[in-house]
Every structure is written in C-alpha cells, then in structure tokens.
Write a protein that binds this DNA or RNA. Sequence first.
DNA 1: TTTTAAATGTGATATAGGTCACGTAAACCG
DNA 2: CGGTTTACGTGACCTATATCACATTTAAAA
Lengths: 190, 190
Amino acid sequence: MEAKETLKAHIGKLAVLTDEQFDYFFSHFKKQRFQKGQTIITRGDAVDCEYFVVSGCLKSFFVNDDLKMFILQFAMPNWWASDYNALYNQTKAAINVDCITDAEVLCLTSADREKLCKEVHNVEHFFRWRTNKGFVAAQKRLLSFMNNDAKYRYEELLKLYPELYNMVPKHLIAAYLGVSRETLSRLYHS
Amino acid sequence: MEAKETLKAHIGKLAVLTDEQFDYFFSHFKKQRFQKGQTIITRGDAVDCEYFVVSGCLKSFFVNDDLKMFILQFAMPNWWASDYNALYNQTKAAINVDCITDAEVLCLTSADREKLCKEVHNVEHFFRWRTNKGFVAAQKRLLSFMNNDAKYRYEELLKLYPELYNMVPKHLIAAYLGVSRETLSRLYHS
DNA sequence: TTTTAAATGTGATATAGGTCACGTAAACCG
DNA sequence: CGGTTTACGTGACCTATATCACATTTAAAA
C-alpha cells in the first residue's frame, strides 16, 4: 500500500518504530483525496487535524484585509500541513490550506496525535524532531527575509525545490516570497 | 534555590514531572553567569549546549557580509536560546549569542537532552511542546514580516514585550524588526 | 571629573518594490 | 469550438525604507 509505505519511510528517518508500533500508529490516519482547488482548512473553522502529504501539493496561506495572499508553506509529498497555531491552541483557523494539484493526504487528529505520543514514546520522539526541523527551517526563512532581496530569495527557493517551478503558478511563488507578482515577473525578465 | 524553581515552574507549564524526575532532570544543567557584553556562542565554533535564561537578557543574531546585524531572538527569563540549526545538525555556529545584560543561565548539552528525552518520557513531551510553541511563534513572525510594515511590527513587539523598551537599545530593536536604526528612529519621531 | 565611546536624531538622496492600468497568452469549460 | 477565466508581461508612477553624512545626547571608562 503506497501511502502507508510513504509514511513509514518518512517516520523512519527520525524515529525507530517496530512494525507493530507503526501499524498501530498508521491505523489512526484517515486517507483522503482532494482535487486541485479544493479547500482543506478554511479560515474561521475549527481545526482538529494535521495532514501528511502522500502525493500532490498543498499550500497554507493567509489572506489579509486587503485580500493580499501570503503563502506560509508549499506542502509537497512527505511534508505535513495544518494551521498549527489553531491546532495547538484550539482556536479557529486563521489561515487556509488548499490544493494546488490533486492530492492524497493522510489525516491525523490532534487528539490521536497526543494519544499516540503518550502511548508510544518513539512517536513522541518523531514529532519532537519533526517540529525541531520545522522550527529551524522557519528561522532560516526569517533570516533570509531580513537579509536577502526578492531575487536572491527566488533563486534560493528554486534551488531548494526546483519542482516548484513547473508545478505552481508564478503568482503563488510571489506570494511565498512576499513580493508582488509584477515584481517577481520583472526579476527574470529584465 | 532560585534557578531551580524558575526552571521547575517553566517545565510545569508544559509537562508533568515528579519531584524525583525533575531533580534528575535538573542535575544535568550547569549554572553559568555571564556579564553584559559577553559572548556565549560564537559563529564558527561548535555548538553543544542550549541555554535556559534564569535572569537577564540574551540575543541571538546573525551578521551578514556587510556587517549588518539581524536579531533572531531576544531571550528573556524563561526562554531558551542557542543556534538550533547548528545544535540539531551538528554543524558550526552560523549565528552568535551574547548578553544584552548580565545574565544567569542554565546550560544543557545536546547529548544530555537526548539522553533525558529517552530516559524520561515526559521530558521528551516537554521538549516537543516547547518547540511546537517556538515553531508557531516563528511562523507568526514570518507572516508579520510579509504582511505588516515596520511601524506595525514595532508596536506589535512592544505590546508583546514592553520590558524591551527600557532594557535594550533601539538599534537592537531595529535589528530585530529588520529595519535600519534610522528608520526606526523616524517611526516614533515623526 | 574628564575623556571616550555608544546610542540616537535628522536632513538629503537613492532604490527596491508596490500599485494601477492595460494588453496578451494560455488554460479550462460548457 | 468559442467564450471565459486565470496567468503573465510591462509601462508609469508612488512609497517605504535604505544609505550616507553629520550633529547631539547619553553612558561608560579612566
């Protein structure tokens, strides 16, 4: 089974679970398929799941009062996505998550995550390290924001995730970089 | 003992440890005192500790090729500081940590953290949630960077940490906000 | 106290990037 | 297939913020 193997390999990079432990862990996930354009988390709604991406590409994004969109994350296969602020603090979603392409995800509720972390020490180990890495990545992006201009950040992003270039429209890349689509267009046409 | 109680209260907000577990946990920390201006982590050096701030204020910061400084974090009492990228990936420090004021910290090695996480499940729980909160905070700051101008971010920072206003010089606040000290000065003098 | 260094304020000017407006091209859909 | 939406390019102009230069005020050190 494709999704199960994908998750297993992913977990295996950060933690060691026995086959029985992994099967138990996996039994708490619900497989879901979404189509391009479908919304997974809507601002204002309650959030009780996080999503492991098996295939496709999601985006998590914030829309401000002027309807400008800012992309927090492109979630590719083997990434996790949710509104973590809402999920951890049990508040309503402040950001949205939707599908840039058709996608297959594995959904885990917050309650099940906590239950699994309590029951299986190595699951907690996994989630600790997953977030450790996310935290470091967020700090790096923050630093790049302060230090580098749009062109540099664009090239940095494409170097790190070349597949984005063909997978997502440029105006979404602009929304990730925090510049207008016009500015992004000018970066490589002049 | 002051430092011990401070750490105990801090841990207690996120995890439940018995007194014996906490004493064992605490026995791995080394108390250190630093003076204003002293460096704790130097770029280029190996990093094997993280620091819990008992009193005083640290900053973690990056200096780019043009000698411009960017502050990643002001570490106040009850916060943790290190170069987490270097610490987690066992690379040389890319950022510096030093003391804005005299400071008392509790130092924990990475090896001890991992040992403790393995030995005491609730310690791993604590560190998972500590990083969860750090991750959410980093994402919020990222969003604020993209969405808000310098003035808004300045007011946001002071609302969240009013004590910074008197504790740290303005050019450091500017380095945290990612603007020049001149721009920050103009924000509130015109 | 005197001396020196660090922090802050402010004008003049430069620039990256934003906004608005409009045109074209490509993708999607009935 | 034609029509409609979505993506993209580009000119003209605007704005927030950077940079440089220098004065002033405050804090640290001797």
